[in-house]
Design a protein around this nucleic acid. Structure first.
Lengths: 161, 161
DNA sequence: TTGCTAAGTGTTATGGTATAACATATCAAT
DNA sequence: ATTGATATGTTATACCATAACACTTAGCAA
């Protein structure tokens, strides 16, 4: 799967591969990838687009893994803390991470039409934001960097509609 | 008022000056800065930090300017469309704009403790996001660029606590 | 002036997002 | 086996946002 994220790819492999990486990472780091958490990640990876917490909950419910909101939010908390998923603030939705495990400061291209997301690497201390933070004496804990718009596919759909 | 936003400044002037600019901008552009909208902007400017829609609504209610949520959201829609205010997605809150009027693609340093916000200029087509968008054929409509963390003041408070 | 249209406001109801709080269960380490 | 930490089940609630419809006001044309 390309870092740019809007291209076709072998999706089944992308899911199972990332899931395997997540398992390895958890084993190394004493994190527990419980059935709910594992399935939540699997679902996010399979959808390959940003899902709302309640969308995820509905999918988990189909598998008999829980029906109340905290089930979904706890799984998402775990996945985001572990770096397996990210919240897209511009959509109040969640996406599986394209680069398994650990802390990073990602940026996203988010299609508001089909909810597909491409993850782009950044460095927290780079760019204008980091520059501005340093000169203001501001301590960055977390960055939200998102471009909302239309992916190539949805652009063509729009022009033909 | 400095662009960096965490420094002391003559606040009464910063409020009245920006309000005057907003009035001028509306006059030029056939926009109607009605009493509710004007007061909403004034309140956001006066608070000088990010306010939730319901916080703003409570303040408007004190002035007898409305009690139901749509009152606040309509005012905020107008102010954000006109470029007089921005939504901070990371807080689901709203902040008066530091640079009156018109379209721009701002970035923010957001203190999660005291909700103060510094606005930093950016260019939509610059940086990694713009680069990535171009190479992916992605059409950016809007950017969300926020650094969440602690402002200088809240850092010192935290270390002393 | 009248009447039209577009924009703004008042209000009710509802939908969507997220968490607090507490009871219960599981598991690893002694 | 006991303990302590972590995970889960469940209820209730808080917070964020908008749909829909009635009514009013402002601007404009006939």
């Amino acid at each position: 799967m390309s870092a740019l994220g809007f291209e076709a790819h072998d999706h089944a492999r992308c899911v199972s591969g990332t899931l395997a990486q997540a398992e390895a990472y958890c084993a190394e780091n004493k994190l527990k990838l419980t059935p709910i958490r594992r399935r939540a990640l699997e679902l996010l990876l399979a959808e390959h687009r940003a899902l709302g917490a309640y969308d995820l909950l509905a999918l988990l419910a189909k598998d008999g893994l829980g029906t109340a909101p905290p089930v979904a939010y706890r799984a998402l908390d775990f996945l985001t803390s572990a770096g397996f998923a990210h919240k897209i603030e511009g959509l109040n939705a969640y996406i599986a991470c394209a680069h398994t495990g650990g802390d990073h400061a990602p940026a996203f291209l988010v299609c508001t039409e089909c909810k597909s997301v491409a993850e782009v690497g950044t460095e927290m201390s780079q760019g204008r934001l980091g520059e501005a933070a340093r000169s203001a004496g501001f301590a960055i804990k977390h960055t939200v960097i998102e471009a909302l718009g239309l992916c190539p596919r949805c652009q063509s759909d729009a022009t033909c509609a």
